[in-house]
């Protein structure tokens, strides 16, 4: 059965942009190990030569005219949702 180490949890948390507290990381480690233990049963199934299913409609690519549609939403109501904004821009802490 797959073992998930403390480091694995932190790596997965990093991939998932989650900054976890240590005790939460340990409880998640146990849960992830159990969940992976369950889903691993698929390995016994022979899927040689089987095409994967990515979607369940028979729809193919649907094209539309390349025209801008703002769905009736202006800039202001959307900017108003941002936790921080200034001069018509969304504001975040300094990156560089």
């Amino acid at each position: 059965m797959t073992q998930i180490s403390h480091d694995d949890v932190h790596h997965l948390a990093q991939l998932s942009s989650l900054q976890l507290a240590d005790e939460e990381a340990e409880s998640l480690r146990i849960d992830l190990e159990n969940i992976l233990g369950y889903i691993e049963q698929l390995s016994e199934l022979n899927t040689d030569g089987v095409e994967p299913t990515y979607q369940v409609t028979d729809l193919q690519s649907i094209w539309r005219e390349d025209v801008i549609d703002d769905y009736g939403l202006g800039r202001e109501p959307l900017l108003a949702l941002a936790p921080d904004s200034e001069a018509n821009q969304i504001k975040v802490p300094k990156v560089l």
Binding site: V9, L12, D31, L32, I35, L36
Partner: peptide, 15 residues
């Protein structure tokens, strides 16, 4: 916690 479990399992199976 359940959101985090699912996100992290997703990150795992896609990595």
């Amino acid at each position: 916690p359940e959101n985090k479990r699912r996100i992290m399992i997703g990150s795992y199976v896609l990595s």
